[in-house]
């Protein structure tokens, strides 16, 4: 059972990493650091709902560290980890609060928290409080992207649950 679970986690990490690297190739539509779709978060939400917090945390942080290595942008680790941590801490209590039809809420609030955490790290690292002007824009973009990835995650989670139940019982 443990091996099965570990394999599933590794598989989901690979999926998240692939999505992450592909998304990096998309051009910046809005030239603001931090504005992105965050498609890889679909996997985090799915893992959180289907497998639980421990698996989700493992997948999320493996993806962040490996993703930064793959993209050659190690400076980004700091921002991504801060964002990922804020996102995770927000999604954790939501897991118990949400019904299966409300999974998308987890993604929206998680994305907003991600941007908040990222901004906090950026302000601290650069020592530039003026960066806060970006926060409202990042919140708007985070909520919009979260709605999209949330819908995708809810769809994927509900479908995958049937498959997992069928094979694992």
């Amino acid at each position: 059972m443990r091996t099965k679970r570990l394999t599933l986690d590794a598989l989901l990490t690979a999926v998240a990493l692939t999505i992450y690297v592909v998304e990096l190739q998309l051009p910046h539509v809005v030239p603001i650091p931090g504005v992105k779709l965050g498609l890889a978060n679909i996997v985090t939400v799915v893992a959180m709902v289907l497998l639980g917090p421990a698996d989700a945390a493992g997948i999320l942080f493996s993806r962040i560290v490996l993703g930064s290595l793959f993209s050659g942008n190690m400076m980004a680790v700091l921002y991504s980890v801060s964002g990922g941590l804020a996102c995770f801490v927000t999604m954790l209590p939501l897991k118990k609060l949400l019904t299966p039809r409300q999974i998308w809420v987890m993604s929206v609030l998680g994305a907003a928290a991600h941007n908040l955490g990222q901004m906090a790290a950026a302000v601290l690292v650069t020592g530039t409080p003026a960066l806060i002007v970006y926060l409202p824009v990042l919140m708007v973009s985070g909520i919009a992207a979260g709605l999209f990835t949330g819908a995708a995650a809810q769809f994927a989670a509900l479908r995958l649950k049937k498959v997992l139940d069928k094979y694992h019982g």
């Binding site: 650091p33 921002y79 824009v137």
Partner: peptide, 11 residues
Amino acid sequence: APIVCLPHRLV
């Protein structure tokens, strides 16, 4: 908004 280069900590 300012121009920001986060990797180089430039604003």
